[in-house]
Design a protein around this nucleic acid. Structure first.
Lengths: 101, 101
DNA sequence: TATCCATATTGCGAGGTTACGATATGGCAA
DNA sequence: TTGCCATATCGTAACCTCGCAATATGGATA
């Protein structure tokens, strides 16, 4: 029997894959990432765009930050968030092309 | 300000997206799905290919079945599992093309 | 029927996730 | 400093997930 393709993925890459999956496995976090695919956002902007309480947005940004999926630029009183993990664009597009529009 | 792309996704599609995410957010389930991307497998085959106890494989197949991500053909004593959700191929390929090989 | 093999389920206990309200931190302007 | 705005964190309770061991189910064969 042939070796499964999945065995060509290293342990580190599997861990990264799981980080991405768990990071995106919540509707609020998925939508946050989708917003950041379009452009950088502050917390307040995301809170308004998604109609979700500020504390809740902050809470969900925390794991995304910890996992290195998003980055933050704290200049002045605002915190501007950026997409850090390039593959997230492909991931979001993957779902949008199947389910979106 | 322009309406975010993510708002073009219906509630049902968002739910489906979350089902896929949560279904795949575990290394054993991710690898099960990756196996099924190549060809149908019985439980024993997956157990051997992934070096994971049979009960554990069955346990993880249960939510995948419930979410409709995989299908099962119970003929004779064996249970042959099949990929049900077409977009899973693209999803797995998305990760493999970034992290695999 | 008795038995074997493959598969599924159940009953824990440990640990993680979530929402919510409240509160804390920290920059900036008056 | 005082006060305001933006952001982050904390505490709690409800709930979900996981691994593990044991057991149940069910087809096939003798």
């Amino acid at each position: 029997m042939a070796k499964p393709i999945i065995d060509t993925m290293t342990d580190e890459h599997m861990e990264r894959t799981m980080a991405v999956m768990k990071g995106m496995a919540h509707p609020i976090r998925f939508r946050i990432v989708a917003l950041l695919c379009e452009r950088d956002h502050t917390v307040t902007e995301m809170s308004q765009a998604l109609a979700v309480r500020q504390a809740s947005i902050s809470q969900h940004l925390s794991p995304l930050r910890l996992l290195g999926l998003v980055g933050v630029d704290r200049t002045g009183g605002n915190a501007t968030y950026t997409l850090q993990e390039p593959m997230l664009r492909n991931l979001v597009n993957c779902f949008l092309s199947h389910y979106g529009r």
